[in-house]
Design a protein around this nucleic acid. Structure first.
Lengths: 120, 120
DNA sequence: TTTATATTTAACCGTCAGGTTATTTAAACA
DNA sequence: TGTTTAAATAACCTGACGGTTAAATATAAA
């Protein structure tokens, strides 16, 4: 079933083996066998992890003879970055100038919104 | 068993319901009942989601009478942000000045690392 | 054409995540 | 005290996830 991008990306990143694979790929392309070396895990297991990363768009693969070299793709991380940064900024601002404003909003809601007036 | 922070945070964020809860919490504290309103889901389900978010450190909870208001916590997102940004920078730089250097690294590895010489 | 190498697919298994309903706990209120 | 409200816990179900081994596929090499 069609999962949204963010969910797919976050899920893909929520596994230490997959993050380690990405870390390894920073130094350049690698084949499946090369990637499997550091892990005490069967090839099919690695193959599955790679498929997850590929579906999430975090890696791309080509074909060279029998090999299927993998390389990193940055696009999905931009989406993640944007999401995270939005929250970070809000949180940081909450601590100073936006704090008062949000407090007001909160109080208003808690008083079970009797008035239907909206700001502007 | 003890999961590393990043795995825990990414897992927590890899669910649209939980991200929606976080989005709702941007506007201020909310009780469990309030949070459950927008979702066609039982209270225990929401309760579980909140526990996941709490374990990941993304929310904190207090006690007011029977209520257990939730509020956002930013700390774990800093870790995520740092991780993502590291990769983004590498990728972005790969496209220009670092590209050549990484190509060299890659080639050297592929020639099964006969020489043990390291750059500086 | 056979054989070897790299990788994927198939079939299976145990665990855990995300949901349910029913029950319990905690505090407020009548 | 007994009742209502807020939330958590228990017990359960189902499906997906992460792993396995064995078989299939694709290409290179002998």
């Amino acid at each position: 079933m069609p999962q949204d991008h963010l969910t797919q990306t976050f899920s893909a990143l929520a596994d230490p083996t997959r993050r380690a694979i990405l870390a390894r790929l920073i130094t350049g392309e690698a084949t499946v066998t090369e990637l499997s070396k550091p892990f005490e895990m069967s090839m099919p297991a690695i193959s599955k992890h790679l498929k997850v990363l590929e579906r999430a768009g975090l890696i791309a693969r080509s074909r060279e003879a029998q090999y299927r070299p993998c390389r990193l793709e940055a696009k999905p991380l931009k989406e993640v970055s944007a999401w995270v940064e939005e929250y970070r900024q809000i949180w940081e601002h909450r601590l100073d100038r936006l704090d008062a404003y949000l407090q007001v909003l909160k109080k208003k809601e808690q008083r079970n919104a009797r008035s239907k007036k909206k700001p502007r």
